[in-house]
């Protein structure tokens, strides 16, 4: 296998990995703050994809320009879910929260099926066959745009959490829940905000990934599991870990698809997940509890 072909595929994997990382960022932020494992993650992402698809079909809006609109819609959905439903179960046993999210996931997939049918759909853009050359690398333009967009949105999120007063309040909640409540922070509202922001992030990732893959409702499960793999590898609750995990999974999947049968590539991710769970359950960048 020529070296530049491998480099090409690895770079493509890296760019896809950035989108995985962005989506996992949403999952990780939600878990890090609310300790809720969002089992409906992939479903939210698929809803984001359908949102971008609708905007394209009806208004000719390219997926990347759909990000603000879809992000805002997903923020509202996420906020409503946490405020209306998940907040009621904050003190319930872990498995009950998990089941609630799984049930929501089932409902969301069912809604997508009813609304859009089971068939794969995509956006057809004129730029789909453009490519970008950097040295020996020849990359799909879409993949490059996707990677750049993912970095931009992730950067925005980092800035929010580091500098915005709300972002700081949310981090305070994540660090010390009782402490945050004692100093008068409205924990439930901050949780809802976090779920909204996480969902917006997932929605943005959905818009971006729509440039690279076709959307159908059953994609949801795949993305949920993929995000779990990414987040566990990076460390639950760690934002930079989610990005790192996304890159690792993106590259290893791309290479596994090259060396093995393409359909075996996700087995590789799950194998990786099992290893990380056993050897370093807090993830590569997670904190030991």
């Amino acid at each position: 296998m020529p070296l530049d072909a491998i480099a090409n595929i690895a770079t493509a994997g890296l760019l896809t990995g950035l989108v995985y990382g962005l989506s996992a960022l949403g999952l990780s932020a939600i878990f890090g703050v609310t300790r809720i494992v969002n089992f409906a993650h992939g479903e939210l992402m698929v809803i984001g994809m359908y949102g971008a698809l609708l905007l394209f079909q009806h208004f000719g809006l390219a997926p990347l320009w759909a990000i603000p609109i879809v992000g805002a819609a997903l923020f509202a959905i996420g906020y409503a879910l946490q405020a209306g439903l998940v907040n009621r179960l904050l003190h319930a046993p872990e498995h009950m929260q998990f089941l609630l999210m799984a049930a929501l996931a089932i409902m969301l997939v069912a809604l997508c099926l009813m609304a859009f049918g089971p068939n794969a759909q995509n956006v057809t853009l004129e730029s789909a066959y453009d490519s970008v050359e950097i040295g020996v690398l020849i990359l799909d333009a879409h993949r490059v745009y996707a990677g750049i967009a993912a970095i931009a949105v992730a950067g925005l999120l980092f800035v929010f959490f580091r500098y915005h007063p709300l972002g700081k309040a949310i981090r305070a909640c994540a660090d010390n829940l009782t402490g945050a409540a004692v100093v008068g922070l409205n924990v439930k509202r901050l949780f809802a905000l976090t779920f909204g922001i996480g969902s917006a992030c997932i929605g943005a990732a959905g818009c971006i990934i729509l440039m690279l893959v076709d959307v159908h409702p059953y994609l949801a499960n795949t993305y949920t599991l993929l995000a779990f793999v990414v987040v566990i590898i990076g460390g639950m609750g760690s934002l930079s870990g989610a990005l790192l995990g996304g890159l690792l999974v993106g590259v290893s999947e791309a290479l596994a698809g090259l060396l093995l049968q393409p359909s075996l590539k996700s087995m590789f991710s799950f194998g990786l997940l099992i290893l990380v769970l056993i050897l370093r359950p807090e993830g590569l960048l997670g904190r030991r509890s």
Binding site: M96, L99, A103, L104, M107, A110, G117
Partner: peptide, 16 residues
């Protein structure tokens, strides 16, 4: 086609 699972999910949400 989705209605069965939708109701399944709803049942679980209500129970939980």
């Amino acid at each position: 086609i989705g209605i069965k699972h939708f109701v399944y999910g709803l049942c679980v949400v209500l129970i939980v």
